[in-house]
Structure formats: structure tokens, C-alpha cells
Simulated scan of single mutants.
Amino acid sequence: MTLFELLSHSPAALVGLVFIVGLLIGSFLNVVIYRLPKMMEQAWQQEARSMLALPEEPPATHFNLVAPRSACPHCGHQIRWYENIPVVSWLALRGKCSACGGKIAVRYPLVELATALISALAAWHFGYGPWLLAVLFACWALVALAMIDFDTTLLPDSITYPLLWVGLMAAWAGISPVSLQDAVMGAAAGYLALWSVYWAFKLLTGKEGMGYGDFKLLATLGAWLGWQLLPLVILLSSVVGAVVGGLLLATGGVKRDQGIPFGPYLAGAGLIALLWGQAIVDTYLGMMQF
């Protein structure tokens, strides 16, 4: 029996393998979450210097997603391969650098574990097939977008646009349960929905209530889910965002005039809708019939 036959006939093997792959992808996502905003900032600085006709200044070191090697932020110790095993190495090192004893943030193993659990849940829910590969890509991209927006209030186009096109191509190829027509309508409706809210809020208050990245992310979710599930995504993200935002204001976590990123709530609602959206809608409609 080949590996593909095993995965197609054994849900346990599929879930287990996807969990391990999810751990490895989660480790890579930690790199993306930390480095991509810095790479974007370097690109913006170079563009600004070019527009102002200033001489370009090459970066002090070659910096991208693969170079330089990961290192301790406290002492610069380069992380060895056996110190970079997802979750396991952090536990073995007790959350400290092996060279200087500086603390390693617990968010790194949490991102790895969350990515693995979400991936395994998707494998258990959808089973073996091409749609699972597409959904895994969506899950990983949404985790990265949520964390980057949480840290920087940025939703990089370099992640959002590929995710949008994969959703549309999956619908075009017949892999997605969403038709191409519904996917295109979902992308358009998702963008226009938040664009309308943005301008209504700006006209009423003179302030910007959200960024254009939020429009693009909801458009992307519309391409994956279809226009029919967009109300559910908006409702889930708004309710959770209002609750969390209220708690942060009440506890002093943020100031009243401080912006709160909406991307993590959109991404979380999108993941829920991707896995259980239709079941949630069907359950609600069934309850409304009584």
C-alpha cells in the first residue's frame, strides 16, 4: 500500500501526518510573522528614497524569509536545528536560550501548536482530497495574516492576494464546494461591504474606522465561502471583536482612541465558517422554523 492509499483509507493516518506537517508549517509561519513586516518596511523605505531621488542605501545585512538564520534576540546565538524542533525544543529548553538563558516567548510554540491543531481539524473534517490541500493553504495563510495584523495592524497583500486567487481558482476547477459565480460574487460583495462601512463611518465621524486590508481580506473570504456565508463571517467577527475590544477597554489594555486590528477576528470567523459555516446556518434556519 502506497502512502497516498494509506492516507485515503485511514483518517487517523491522514490527521496524524497533517498534524506533524502543521507543526513544521507553524514554525515557518513564526518566521513569516516576524520577518515579512520588516521586509515590507525596508521596501517602503527604498521606494520613498527612490521617489525623493535620494541615493539608495543597501541594507546592512541580507534579510528575507530564509536569511539570515534564526538567532536569539538577546545574544545573537544562532539557533541550531535541534533547537528549532516545533514545540519540543521550546519545552526541552524550558523556554530559554541555550546560550544566554534569555526567555523565548511562549507565542512561538503556541503558533506552532495552533497551526497543527487547525490543520488536523481540517483534515478530520474534509478528509483526503484536493480540497483539503486548498483548505490547508487557506488555514496557514489566515493564521499568518491574523498574527501579523495583531502585531502591526498590517494585512500584507503578498499573502492576501494569493489566497484570493487560490480560492477563485479552486472554484473554477470544481475543487471548491462553492461555484465560480458565487465565489466571484462573494469576493465583490465582501470588498464592497466593508468599503461601504468604511466610508459611512468616515463621512459621519471624519475618522477612518478600518484599513483597506480588511476589505481585501473579507473579499478573499467571500471567494472561498461564497456570498451566502458572508453575513455569518461579518456577524461572528463583529461580535467577537466587540466583546474583546470592550474587555480591553475595561481592563486598560487599550486606550479609547487606540485602534484595534480587525483582521484577527475576520480570520478567525473565516476559519469557523470554512469548517462549519453551512452547518451553523442550517442549524439556525432549522431553529427559526419552530
Rank of each mutant, 00 (worst) to 15 (best):
T61C: 11
L7Y: 02
A92Q: 13
W124D: 10
S158T: 14
L155E: 06
L36A: 02
H74Y: 11
W81I: 11
G22M: 01
M287W: 15
L235T: 15
L154D: 07
Y212M: 11
D282T: 14
L52W: 12
N30L: 05
S27Q: 09
W81C: 06
L133H: 13
M288P: 11
Y34P: 00
Q289M: 13
W224C: 11
G259N: 07
L229G: 06
F28N: 07
N30R: 03
M39D: 06
G209A: 15
G174R: 06
N84R: 01
P37E: 06
L232W: 00
P37K: 09
G186Y: 04
E47I: 05
L275N: 04
I280G: 03
L203H: 10
A114Q: 06
L192P: 00
M147T: 00
A138K: 02
L274W: 01
G211A: 02
W227N: 08
G245P: 04
A193D: 04
K96H: 15
R256I: 08
C75N: 05
T283E: 11
M147Y: 14
V18W: 05
I79Q: 08
L3H: 09
K38A: 12
L23W: 02
T205M: 08
M39A: 09
T283V: 09
L24A: 14
R35T: 06
L117W: 04
F290Q: 10
K202H: 14
G174M: 04
G16R: 11
L163W: 05
G22I: 01
S70N: 08
L117V: 13
W131H: 14
C75Q: 02
W227L: 12
L7H: 05
V239R: 05
G26W: 01
L221C: 07
W90E: 03
L93E: 11
V166R: 03
I280W: 06
G277P: 02
W276P: 03
Q278H: 10
S237K: 03
L133M: 15
S70G: 12
A250R: 14
A116C: 06
W227A: 15
G241V: 10
K255E: 15
G26K: 01
V240K: 05
T2K: 01
S176C: 08
Q46H: 10
A12Q: 13
L232F: 08
L248R: 02
C97T: 10
E208R: 13
W90F: 09
L23N: 01
G268D: 00
W124M: 10
D157R: 08
C139T: 14
L14E: 05
A71V: 00
G259P: 00
A12I: 13
A71D: 09
M40W: 13
M40L: 15
